[in-house]
Design a protein around this nucleic acid. Structure first.
Lengths: 155, 155
DNA sequence: TATCGATACATGCAAATGCATCTAGTTTGA
DNA sequence: TCAAACTAGATGCATTTGCATGTATCGATA
């Protein structure tokens, strides 16, 4: 048996290995997904913004809310939205309650494109994840990652 | 009860939601990690290459092997290695068995820097993951993500 | 063994990204 | 109530990234 130091160190090691495994699995899956034909017309990061908007009940999100969901700097998101707007897929609106804020919403074309890519994307995901894990395992993975995300978000 | 179509669609939905949750948790954790002081001196992606080399038993890896672990195009990795080499952290060597190949290895300075950053990085991970999940949950998450990664890798 | 396709890595170049900074609007508190 | 500190988002600029392509080597086949 190791003493307290050994126990603490093994807890640290477990956390590190868990994160490493989560990260590498994300890389492996993402690599496959983004190489699919669905993302020839629109990069994954841009699709992700359309997707996030499509899932939001009000249909509108502040840029800083979107920024929380995406691994991009504030300025990069601003310019990514520029590109989406130039393509007519999203619309910027002044936030009614905050003069500094910008609300983003999907245009009709943006919504259509999201659905089109989304259908294929979801199929690709199912082909990768479905054979890898049983439904119970998927539910458990969903639960654990959601728990982790919630804990980290509440920093 | 829904018929076969309903069952299939719910399996697809579960896979999609699982992936979405895995992805968002990765984003949340990575965001925290990369904003830490450990990565002021070296970007996370560059650290990841040093780390990968440090874990490899032979101490040498082919560029294409590293490329499998990292979410970067081949050309981006090539230039990332240029930067590491310019800083004296890694060394390129011709692969003995394949005239096209390049072996990468850590220099002494690279190994030192990896250890220094790594110690702090591991601590940061433990502070994020440790409070979020019990050790059993972490082990299960590790198992599930590794199973997923292995399945996806074997395409 | 000469040829043709595939693989490993590098490089030119246009596009995307992040840092620092700017502007404008909001909140705080003396 | 007004100045100072703070927040949301945009922009200049240097760095990083990916796509397309180039060069060299490898492997299979005829």
């Amino acid at each position: 048996m190791s003493g307290p130091t050994g126990a603490a160190s093994s807890a640290v090691r477990l956390a590190a290995e868990t994160w490493e495994s989560l990260f590498r699995s994300q890389v492996a899956v993402m690599r496959k997904l983004q190489s699919g034909p669905a993302f020839k017309t629109l990069p994954v990061k841009e699709y992700d913004v359309l997707f996030t908007l499509s899932k939001c009940p009000s249909g509108q999100l502040r840029l800083n809310e979107i920024n929380d969901k995406v691994l991009l700097s504030q300025s990069s998101l601003s310019r990514l939205v520029d590109r989406l707007e130039k393509r007519g897929l999203v619309e910027r609106t002044a936030a009614p309650d905050d003069g500094r804020g910008v609300l983003l919403s999907l245009t009709e074309a943006g919504s259509e494109l999201q659905k089109t890519i989304g259908r294929e994307h979801v199929r690709d995901i199912a082909h990768l994840v479905g054979p890898a894990l049983t439904p119970e395992e998927q539910r458990e993975l969903l639960r654990l990652t959601e728990k982790l995300r919630a804990s980290v978000a509440g920093h």
